[in-house]
Design a protein around this nucleic acid. Structure first.
Lengths: 145, 145
DNA sequence: CTAAGGGTTAAAGTTTACTTTAAGTCAAGA
DNA sequence: TCTTGACTTAAAGTAAACTTTAACCCTTAG
């Protein structure tokens, strides 16, 4: 077994489509050397990069943001655990914020009976926005008769 | 003040762009009569429909799903509170699920130290999936040295 | 009456994250 | 050697949810 992976092997192991991997290479998210005949050969740690990318996506980052984050890895040596952890700092907060927004929305829904919806433009429920304002001002209202 | 609204007035009151409102009309999400000269005239309750649409989007529904939901409103009379509430049944559960997924992800992140990421294809963190499997099997691991 | 401001249309453009297609090249076993 | 399956490329296609553009019409205040 070689220590370099073909795109098919990476696809197999990561569960990603080969086309997606090529796309990621284009976008600079992963890197491949080229073997005889121009075929891509990936180092094994591409799998960790891909894991990182997928998790980052679930946290809500765009590929551009993920690319910026990955650019923070040391170019000269293989990333170690501290390197990776540095990149995931702040994700917990980001997730907490999204949870807070959803909880506010749910709270609004269940308490939202008898609403006049007088001002759509300022209704916290219909406007995505900062957590503070959504959480801060008590129940909002959705529907009235 | 008329009891029918121009598209500009609806845009102003809802905070939506006029182009978005035209788009919604095309998609059957809102309805407009036509006045002299072919201009759109909206009944005031279009504002409630728009509020519904925006909140449904925040809950995670696509415009197609929202259109189906709106089709459940009575065609012959103005919707009342029960009508609207019927449409929002099930949203709470949907939101709870999304919260559960995010919490599992956050829990995984914070406990994710020392992971071998041996099988990307089955790693709960890198794979979006059902809540049960993500929640059920204890901490998962993200990064190793 | 006329100019400004808002309204109309269809069609094309935007963004994100990919997939599909077409046409061709490479690698490995029988 | 041949054939099959995996690989290559660039370019176009997809989906969602809109926005932009261009060319034109309507309404209203002065």
């Amino acid at each position: 077994m070689e220590d370099l992976l073909t795109i098919g092997q990476v696809a197999e192991r990561s569960g990603l489509a080969a086309s997606a991997i090529r796309f990621y290479e284009q976008r600079g998210l992963v890197h491949a050397e080229r073997g005889s005949g121009g075929q891509r050969r990936f180092r094994r740690d591409v799998l960790r990069r891909i894991a990182f990318i997928r998790i980052a996506q679930r946290v809500g980052l765009s590929l551009d943001e993920i690319a910026s984050a990955l650019a923070g890895l040391p170019p000269d040596r293989a990333p170690n655990r501290q390197d990776w952890q540095r990149l995931t700092r702040g994700w917990g907060r980001r997730i907490d914020e999204r949870i807070a927004v959803l909880e506010a929305l749910r709270g609004g829904l269940t308490s939202c009976i008898g609403c006049g919806c007088l001002s759509l433009r300022t209704c916290a429920l219909s406007n995505p926005g900062d957590v503070a304002s959504t959480l801060g001002a008590g129940p909002r209202y959705l529907l009235e008769d």
